[in-house]
Design a protein around this nucleic acid. Structure first.
Lengths: 213, 213
DNA sequence: TTTTGTGAAGGAATTCACAGCA
DNA sequence: TGCTGTGAATTCCTTCACAAAA
């Protein structure tokens, strides 16, 4: 019973988020109990992995039976802090920025975009979705403070990314999710995550070309 | 000298792709030589990591000097098989699909979208960019064969993802890049990569909430 | 000198295999 | 009996530290 050794590995955190999806669909179909084996299959991982991941946070299962779907989902959301609202903003309202802003899934999970920014004059003042207005970049610091924005998403062109990051930092942002292919260097204490989609293509190309598994 | 032990770790492959970006900008500014230390700093990794990564494939540096930028870039592109063209298609032409289709960076790296697919009647026949027409989903298998498409990108809504994957497989696709939050199960031998953006938000939320480094 | 290339050491994450409990 | 929870074993990846080369 309960609480494993030191801090859980980061891969564990990402998998917890993964577990959430099939769990929600099980919930929808009124399944009450799930085994590590079933959950594992639904997520493409091993059963031992599922159990180990969960064991870092306590023990939620019943031996011989499995995990209660409702309880497990609630627990994971608690661990991931998805049981509260997070205010985000997007800098750079091109296609990608729009795609994120209009995606309903994020809001469902508690991630709410409360401000949009772009450098193009023609876009300023336009709104996307329900009352989501596009502001100029200079207003980033002020809006971040005013609206309590904790996470900033950068979807600008490469040449604007650095400026976007600086302005977010100035406003007191806590984390940045960067889609540009630029290496940002935020000050100590600010969390940076990069998503570089073409890196994924490159991995695919490598595997295909080398013909390895 | 040269060629390290067994197959290189996958993290190494992803970093090679990462190294490519600053290398290109160095190339642009006519810098001829780069040390592992400088390259490391530009990418946010350690110098030892850079050298170890490269050592899996041979030795390209000159001791006491560094790496020749032009040569290193060419070598990495060769390793990643980015020195040739790859034909891709996108299934699901919403904002995200559009963002990918219109992004010039991919083509620059050899990843060319040669067909688009969507299930909405109103979108069929429209074209995006230079001669990129949107076809209905049923035409996926035929077009994949006809145009020699090796990589399929799925940017549909969740409820269409499975069908999209099946049709791609039917056409003989070799790899699938899946942006939907659905766990796909392609047959043996077909490479699947998932990009689930909200997982990244979840990791950020976790770190912020726990206040850990 | 300077900076690479790399075995050896260390650390992190996964898998094994089984004890413990329902 | 069946499935969880978890130390121990293993595999995988990174970092260290230094010999080798320019």
């Amino acid at each position: 019973m309960g609480i494993n050794q030191g801090r859980p590995p980061f891969p564990t955190i990402k998998r917890l988020a993964l577990y959430t999806r099939p769990l929600e669909s099980l919930l929808g179909s009124k399944v009450q109990v799930v085994s590590s084996e079933m959950l594992a299959k639904m997520c493409g991982v091993t059963p031992a992995q599922v159990r180990k991941d969960l064991s870092y946070f306590g023990d939620f299962g019943t031996r011989g039976v499995g995990y209660d779907v409702v309880e497990l989902l609630k627990t994971i959301k608690g661990i991931l802090a998805t049981d509260r609202k997070w205010n985000l903003c997007i800098v750079g309202i091109g296609n990608l920025g729009k795609a994120l802003a209009e995606n309903e899934n994020f809001k469902k999970r508690g991630y709410e975009f409360v401000a949009l920014f772009d450098s193009e004059k023609e876009k300023i003042g336009k709104s996307l979705g329900p009352g989501l207005v596009i502001y100029p970049l200079d207003e980033i610091p002020q809006k971040v403070k005013e609206l309590n924005i904790e996470i900033g998403v950068i979807t600008t062109k490469a040449n604007q990314a650095r400026r976007a990051a600086d302005l977010l930092v100035l406003g007191g942002i806590r984390a940045i999710l960067n889609f540009s292919p630029i290496q940002l260097r935020p000050p100590e204490g600010i969390l940076l995550e990069n998503i570089d989609i073409s890196v994924r293509f490159e991995k695919i190309a490598y595997v295909l070309a080398k013909g390895l598994k």
